[in-house]
């Protein structure tokens, strides 16, 4: 699967990301694949097991938000932004809805990233 095909499968700001990476597709793809192996997502899932520790959930979601933002994965960026916002503004009242969706979509995205050429 190439980048273009990936962008049809998942919502992403491909142009913005490529601009950020100065058009260096290889480097961009390298980091896209790297993100799958990063511990940040596992840390988030671990934190998500305890909804009472909202601080940890915010911290791990905040990390992922930055990572996904840098790599133009806009849907995931927005999802994790919502989680951070919910903890900061609503005391995490919607976490039980947001977290499962975020995990599901992140897993799906990671599965697609594994197929990236």
């Amino acid at each position: 699967m190439n980048l273009h095909e990936l962008s049809t499968q998942i919502p992403m700001d491909l142009n913005g990301a490529m601009e950020r990476f100065c058009g260096q597709e290889a480097i961009f793809k390298k980091y896209l694949k790297r993100i799958v192996d990063d511990a940040a997502f596992d840390n988030f899932k671990t934190a998500a097991n305890n909804l009472d520790d909202k601080q940890q959930i915010e911290f791990t979601a905040h990390t992922l938000k930055g990572m996904f933002g840098n790599l133009g994965l806009s849907e995931l960026y927005n999802l994790f932004s919502s989680i951070v916002n919910d903890v900061r503004s609503n005391n995490g009242s919607k976490l039980s809805e947001l977290i499962p969706e975020a995990i599901e979509k992140t897993t799906k995205t990671f599965d697609l990233l594994k197929e990236l050429e």
Binding site: R20, F21, C22, I27, Y31, R34, D38, A40, G66, N70
Partner: peptide, 9 residues
Amino acid sequence: LNMEIATEL
């Protein structure tokens, strides 16, 4: 990863 990306960029 963020450090690597930022450093690279």
